[in-house]
Design a protein around this nucleic acid. Structure first.
Lengths: 236, 236
DNA sequence: TTTTCAACCAATCAAAAAATGGTATCAATC
DNA sequence: GATTGATACCATTTTTTGATTGGTTGAAAA
């Protein structure tokens, strides 16, 4: 058998596997995103050795007709894009400085919109949270109500999407490792800076003063950042 | 044994369990989000029967100091908000008006920070996207590069958390049903309003003019909103 | 009647087992 | 010798299985 014949036989074999695979897929009419049988099963079913089958599969993958993934299988269609909105995924790629920067960027604007959109029930809820922070005798309790206050402001925007984004930010914040940054006095101080800042913030929202509400929130968060991370980088 | 005595003993018992549990927690000083031992172990450790322990735990849960979940355990702090990170979940609860409002609230601030933090490579990427939008002959291509431009600005903040939040917002926007709102001319117009607005925006970022960058982004998005939803509600 | 205890239930988690696409190895074949 | 084909092995993922945990029920005990 000559070299030429040899080569033609090889081509025939691989092309045969590809043709057989295509015929198989055409006959089955798999819907999109269907997982087709594992390679080892397809080998037996099509009567082709695995190497030839994988070459045929590689052709179809290059054409974008299928996509494969180790451990999962081979699927009809194109590979879906990764949805990496997972809180754990994000929090593993951020740090306290970024979290504070994000809060400083978003929450003042939430307060501004809340001043426009808050209902009186929203404002009552904020004032309730403030009262609770003032009577808290433990930091754990204080922080719980401080959390609720900030969420109440996000909710007062009356925008479900903004509220969802705030919740995501909040979950990342709570999942972030703050280490020694959060060490503080054993019990909340009656003269704690946040009390006056919270009062001014909610008062601005109640007065529908959008600019002042944003400014109060920014001032409050900058105080928090200064306490946590030290003085700001640009010194304002 | 009189009824009165009997009742006092009951109170003593349950209050005793609660007091013992509180003492236990105070002694351990568990950090936030710590899982404390399962009820069956706590029973043995505190020498209290499970019913009394569960009553005490219920009190602490009502106070917001702990939260419990079947199969998981009991945790210090308040129950975290449910998984509202799912894009499908959010987009089912929002609408085009909310999406535009959220973009108008967040993206100008992203542009402001980008003006401060962008590298020259970031700015080159933005200019590249702008060039591509101008040569696009189909809306699909135009929108792809417009998308990349806005994402490049978010990336230029050099803040992974903000970028993740922007991506979430973006995915919700793309998953939102816009219906007839998006109907437009068949092909991009050379005099399309976005071209000049994009140019001014990226120029402001390149000049490190934070206020101007934010203003340009706001003006651009307000134009988009006007085109999509008609005139703004408050008439500005 | 009330309290206590054990058993059970549904949800959850964690570790083991199986499955799957990718790769190396080596004999078989031309 | 070079190529092919079968086998075994690898890394990743899915499925399965058993244990764990908060919640509930019902009978026994006080």
């Amino acid at each position: 058998m000559s070299d030429r014949t040899h080569q033609r036989n090889d081509q025939d074999d691989s092309q045969g596997a590809l043709a057989q695979l295509q015929a198989f897929l055409a006959a089955k009419e798999y819907p999109l995103n269907t997982r087709l049988p594992p390679e080892r099963s397809l080998c037996a079913e099509l009567g082709v050795n695995r190497t030839a089958l994988r070459k045929a599969l590689a052709v179809l993958e290059a054409e974008g007709q299928i996509w494969r993934h180790v451990g999962r299988g081979t699927f009809i269609g194109t590979k879906p894009v990764d949805n990496i909105n997972d809180v754990g995924f994000i929090s593993r790629r951020t740090n306290p400085a970024e979290v504070m920067e994000a809060r400083l960027l978003i929450e003042p604007e939430l307060a501004r919109l809340a001043a426009l959109s808050a209902t009186s029930a929203d404002i009552a809820e904020m004032q309730h949270c403030i009262r609770k922070t003032k009577t808290a005798s433990e930091w754990r309790v204080y922080e719980a109500w401080d959390n609720k206050l900030h969420r109440a402001i996000a909710q007062a925007t009356r925008n479900n999407l903004l509220l969802a984004l705030f919740d995501t930010l909040n979950m990342v914040r709570r999942a972030t490792v703050w280490g020694r940054l959060r060490t503080a006095k054993p019990t909340p101080d009656p003269g704690h800076h946040s009390f006056a800042e919270h009062d001014a913030l909610v008062a601005a929202i109640a007065n529908r003063d959008m600019d002042l509400a944003a400014a109060c929130m920014r001032r409050h968060l900058e105080t928090v950042r200064r306490k946590l991370l030290g003085s700001t980088e640009n010194g304002g």
